[in-house]
């Protein structure tokens, strides 16, 4: 393992973190100016949303309090300054600290996404290993299941799962509860389509690995089918799926917006949806920033995992080896 860790030099991690700071700055800037494009007066939103009857004096007072009367550039700089110190501002609608709000919601969403990713990997691995080396029919069944799973939209899958498991069968709650049972349907909703995607790339490289000369060499040493799979082929099959997992995690968090809403589950996704509905700009920016941060960290993690699983990438990028 020590040998494996040296494949991930600190300089690589440092460079990636530097890149992450740049991406966060870009996200903050983009969201700051994009939010300005939303029609309507932010002061009105603070005082109860558009259409509410507010006096010009109240509006002016709010503008002064939130700095909305300053030039845009000054507002931008002061917002950047606040973000740099980790201050995400105050929610217009909930009148609480956005940082605290986001933190309280983050755990639930992360749990949902991590569990979904793990379950998707499990399904994909099971399907890929079951359907290869078992003849044409199994291969076609496996590939068909993957395509169908990958094509399922979250909202349809969620409602179908609720109808089957809650309404007809009655074994699982239709809305998210505090215990583990409440997690099953939301996790399945997110994991099944992702398992379809991961399974497709896994099976393709699994088939390639099983037909490669090094697997023939392993068999010629007397390696069993299980040994071939675990010692050689699965590692090759996992490589593209690991690279895909960074992207997959991002898609899981955006999928969480729909799933948390359907299953009435507290989390970042639902907070974001609520905030957009009432134009709660600081919450929107806060959630977007945190999601970007999580996405960046996840990408770095998958890159590190790729390097650990495939030593060749490390030597190619640093120009060593060969």
């Amino acid at each position: 393992m020590a040998e494996a860790l040296t494949r991930v030099p600190l300089r690589f991690v440092a460079r990636r973190l530097g890149g992450a700071v740049f991406v966060l700055w870009a996200v903050a800037t983009l969201t700051f100016f994009a939010v300005r494009l939303i029609p309507g007066d932010p002061a009105e939103a603070i005082l109860g949303g558009p259409g509410s009857q507010t006096s010009p004096e109240a509006l002016a007072a709010v503008r002064a309090e939130y700095g909305l009367d300053q030039p845009v550039f000054v507002q931008y700089l002061s917002q950047l300054g606040r973000l740099a110190t980790g201050d995400l501002g105050r929610s217009y609608a909930l009148n609480m600290d956005v940082g605290a709000l986001v933190l309280s919601q983050l755990g639930g969403t992360l749990l949902l996404a991590v569990l979904s990713l793990a379950v998707a990997w499990l399904f994909a691995l099971l399907l890929a290993t079951w359907s290869t080396g078992r003849g044409r029919l199994a291969r076609q069944i496996g590939s068909g299941l993957e395509i169908i799973a990958a094509a399922l939209p979250h909202f349809w899958l969620a409602t179908t799962l609720i109808v089957v498991f809650s309404v007809w069968w009655g074994v699982l709650p239709p809305i998210s509860t505090a215990d583990a049972r409440g997690l099953v349907l939301p996790v399945l909703t997110l994991a099944i389509p992702l398992a379809g995607f991961l399974g497709q790339v896994m099976r393709e490289s699994l088939v390639a690995a099983l037909e490669s000369p090094f697997v023939l060499s392993a068999r010629a040493r007397g390696e069993s089918e299980r040994g071939v799979l675990w010692r050689h082929a699965l590692r090759h099959a996992a490589l593209p799926a690991i690279s895909l997992s960074g992207w997959a995690f991002g898609s899981l968090i955006s999928g969480a917006v729909i799933v948390e809403t359907i299953f009435a589950r507290p989390g970042l996704g639902r907070s974001l949806l609520n905030a957009v509905t009432v134009r709660d700009v600081p919450v929107v920016i806060g959630v977007v920033m945190v999601v970007a941060l999580v996405y960046i960290l996840m990408t770095i993690l998958t890159d590190v995992a790729s390097r650990l699983a495939d030593p060749r990438t490390a030597s190619i990028r640093t120009g060593a080896g060969g």
């Binding site: 023939l216 060499s217 040493r221």
Partner: peptide
């Protein structure tokens, strides 16, 4: 296989698992 008869293939780059050090590939027998 490996004990009573051994096999050597063309193209060792592809015939040894590119992800594993040779000490483990050889040690497998």
């Amino acid at each position: 296989r490996g004990r009573d008869v051994g096999l050597v293939l063309q193209d060792a780059l592809a015939s040894l698992d590119p992800l594993r050090p040779i000490v483990r590939e050889i040690g497998d027998s």
